[in-house]
Computed example of a mutant assay.
Amino acid sequence: MLDQLLGRASLKDRIDELEAETERLQARYEAESERRAEAATARQEAEKKVNRLEDRIAQLEGELERTDAVETDVAPRRRERLRGTRLETVIDRLTAFETGPEGALTAVLSDDEGVATLADAHDVDFQALLGDRAALVDAAAPCVLCLDDAGLVAVALEPPAMPDPDPRVGWDDRFALEREWFLPTGRYALALVRTDLFALGTYDDGDRVDYRGFESDVKGSHSKGGFSQARFERIRDDQIDDHLERCREALAERVGSDTDRLYLVGQRGVVETLADESGLEPAGTAAVDATGDPEPALEDAHRSFWTTELRVF
């Protein structure tokens, strides 16, 4: 009664409310503190994990840099394009090299395979023979590879006419290289074919003994005005077909029993089309950049074709 008269009852109620609010806020504070402690712990763990990952990344980047440095350092000791007398001298030296029985390896690699293919098929440990340089052989394919078991000779040659890769690998007391893979030997024909030009030479040990050449009227690039693009292309295609028919006739007339083999060179797509449609089986084909009039273009093409790239590992 006295508390009510003095107004203390309401004050006590207010105090109780405030105390309850204080307890609630205290509980909330303690809960929030726990959450913050857990968050701090989680953050510390995350930071430790990030640090570990950053250290690992730095380690891997260092390994990658070292690997790149090794790959950069591993390069052929020498690369050279050989033709003529210089090529003949190199082939003579390689064929004169002699070892003990099965000490010299000759391997033919096509353009879609590397040393791993030959190693699996013929049980040759190229890694033991070449170490890190084995990757250089893959990059050199297609090629003819010459290695000896003492590591004195390790070269790859990319001849104008790749040999039949059978047998692909051979161990002997010397390297099994045929001169006709690299050098113009015997009696053969070489034809240069472009969309508007044909030149055919018959050669005896590299010396030309017969020649025929001609140019055809084939439209160049289309320009505005005149023919529509589609009509222009049809006319040009017909002209190219006529030109290739003349080429086939010339080959049929000139290539026969008096030549051992035929090589076709020139624009890649034109050469492939002519080879497919002529019924002939060229001993080799190649894309060469020979321009100008038929006869000098043929000489340029012949010189370019009989070139071998040498890589010394």
Rank of each mutant, 00 (worst) to 15 (best):
M1C: 00
L5M: 09
L5C: 10
R8S: 13
A9E: 12
S10G: 13
K12N: 11
D13K: 15
R14K: 15
I15W: 15
D16I: 07
E19M: 13
A20C: 03
Q26W: 13
R28W: 11
R28E: 11
Y29C: 00
Y29I: 04
A31E: 14
E32Q: 10
S33G: 07
R35A: 10
R36N: 07
R43F: 04
Q44W: 07
N51W: 01
D55N: 10
D55T: 15
A58W: 00
A58L: 04
A58S: 04
Q59P: 01
L60E: 05
R66H: 08
E71Q: 12
T72R: 06
V74N: 01
V74F: 02
R77W: 01
R77F: 01
R79N: 09
L82H: 01
T85R: 12
E88Y: 02
R93C: 06
L94Q: 02
L94A: 08
F97D: 09
E98W: 04
T99Y: 06
E102Y: 06
L105S: 04
A107Q: 01
S110W: 09
D112N: 07
E113P: 10
L118D: 03
H122D: 13
H122K: 13
A128K: 14
L129R: 10
L129A: 12
L130A: 13
G131M: 05
G131R: 00
D132Y: 00
R133I: 00
R133T: 00
A135Q: 01
L136R: 03
L136N: 14
D138L: 03
A141V: 00
C146H: 12
A150I: 11
G151P: 07
V155F: 12
V155H: 07
A156G: 03
P160W: 05
A161Q: 08
P165H: 15
D166G: 04
R168C: 12
W171E: 15
D172L: 12
E178V: 09
T185H: 00
G186M: 01
A189C: 12
A191C: 10
L192A: 05
R194A: 13
D196G: 09
D196N: 14
L200H: 03
T202Y: 14
Y203V: 14
V209A: 10
D210F: 06
R212G: 08
S216N: 11
K219L: 14
H222W: 10
S223I: 11
G226Y: 04
G226F: 10
F227M: 13
A230S: 03
F232T: 02
R234A: 08
R236H: 04
D237E: 01
D241G: 01
D242R: 08
E245W: 06
R248L: 05
E249C: 04
L251Y: 03
A252S: 07
A252Q: 06
V255H: 12
D260E: 10
Y263I: 08
Y263K: 02
G266Y: 07
G266Q: 07
R268A: 11
G269A: 15
D276R: 15
E277I: 08
L280K: 04
E281N: 08
A283V: 02
G284I: 02
A287Y: 03
D293A: 15
D293Q: 05
P294C: 12
L298E: 02
A301I: 09
S304E: 15
S304D: 14
S304W: 06
F305W: 02
W306Q: 05
T307R: 08
T308E: 07
E309D: 10
L310K: 02
L310E: 05
L310H: 02
F313M: 09
